[in-house]
Amino acid sequence: MSDYGTGHGGVDNNLRSYDEILQNPVLKDSERERLTAEALVAYISMLLVRRGDVETARLMLLVERWALEWDNEGQEKDLVLDVDPANRGHFTQDVIEKLRAICSEVSDRFKYGINWIEVRETLPALGPGWRDQFERELKGERPTNQARRLQTGPPRWVEDDLLFTNAGEQRVYRALKHRQEQVLPAEDTIAIFPLPNGRVSKRTWEPDFLVTYKGRAGVLEVDGPHHNARRALDRTRDHLLHDSGIAYVDRVPVEALESPKELNAVVDRFLRRLAESR
């Protein structure tokens, strides 16, 4: 679930649940609708898991965007889930009916007034250069990394046919790629894997970046503005990664994302320590 600061309609960062956030009287209507849609997706996903329906729950990871939209026929707002055309077939009528039932249950509990779900295909972001993109996709050249975290909607960040979940991750990728292509020698460079899903002991996890260099694998995470509360979890995860063969783990602090000089220093330190790790 996302954190919402005072820059988003005056939401208090200390509020801990969607129910509390949505009761904030200073919320703008557009923000309230966005958060309501996100809350429904979150509750549906979690209830599916806790009720043991893991198969259906995993389908929620295929949802790329969600929103509340007006339904002229029903004269009410529906929760609309957008999925890639390649994944639309997984959402059978039985699955959709199951999602609708939980949506109504949660909506009734919290008085959201949303009792219907529609699942539709995402539309790609196209412009005047669409023919080049069309030709690449005909050849099978589409973003293929496993960047499928739950997202609240556009924009999406894509570079080199790789997906990123925010602009900060894309900045880190560009800094790594600069070293890969312009700084390090071709025979002694790095490989960059953004957002690869993987399994470590007792959990599935998606690091921000897996980087290989000089025969070693390292993980570089990008901190968010509310990262301090997760320090204990990070330490536990770091231990699991080291036990699993990851040589070095480091983090890009949120402050460095706004300073090219600081970001370059963090990336250089990460690569140096990865190369020196034992």
Rank of each mutant, 00 (worst) to 15 (best):
A125I: 13
D132T: 12
D84Y: 02
V106D: 04
L68I: 00
T92S: 06
S107H: 04
D84R: 04
E76P: 08
F91K: 04
W66H: 10
G113H: 10
E97K: 11
Y112D: 00
E76W: 08
F110Y: 15
L126M: 14
R88T: 03
D84F: 03
R131P: 03
L126Q: 11
L81H: 09
V80G: 07
I102G: 05
E118M: 06
Q93H: 15
L123F: 07
G89E: 03
F110Q: 13
S107C: 10
G113R: 13
D108A: 02
D108N: 11
D82R: 14
L68W: 06
A101T: 02
S107M: 07
S104L: 02
G74Y: 09
K77P: 01
I96P: 00
D94L: 06
N115F: 14
W70C: 03
L123C: 03
E121S: 09
N115A: 12
L99G: 11
F110H: 13
L123Y: 09
V80P: 07
E97G: 10
D94V: 07
L123A: 09
V83M: 08
I96R: 03
A125C: 09
L123W: 02
Y112M: 01
E105T: 10
I114A: 02
V119T: 04
L68Y: 06
V95E: 02
G113K: 14
F91T: 04
D82N: 12
A125S: 11
D71W: 02
T122D: 07
D108I: 06
W70Q: 05
L68T: 00
V106P: 00
I96C: 00
T122A: 07
I114P: 01
A67I: 06
D84C: 03
Q75K: 15
R88N: 13
D78Y: 04
N87L: 12
A101F: 01
E121A: 01
W70H: 10
G89H: 08
A67W: 13
C103V: 00
L81C: 01
G89D: 01
L123K: 06
N72S: 15
D132C: 03
K77D: 06
E73M: 07
D108T: 10
P85N: 00
E118C: 08
S107T: 08
F91E: 07
D82Y: 14
F91S: 05
R109D: 13
L99R: 11
L99H: 14
G89R: 07
D108K: 12
N72G: 11
I96Y: 00
A67L: 11
S104R: 04
R120K: 10
D71M: 02
F91R: 04
K98Y: 10
H90P: 09
K98Q: 15
V106T: 05
L99N: 13
G89T: 02
P128H: 08
E76A: 11
I96S: 03
A67E: 15
S107V: 08
E73H: 09
A86E: 15
G127T: 12
N87F: 12
H90N: 13
V80W: 09
V119K: 01
I102V: 14
S104K: 08
T122V: 05
G74P: 13
A86N: 10
G113Q: 12
D71H: 01
R120G: 03
R109L: 13
G127K: 05
V95L: 06
G129S: 15
V106N: 03
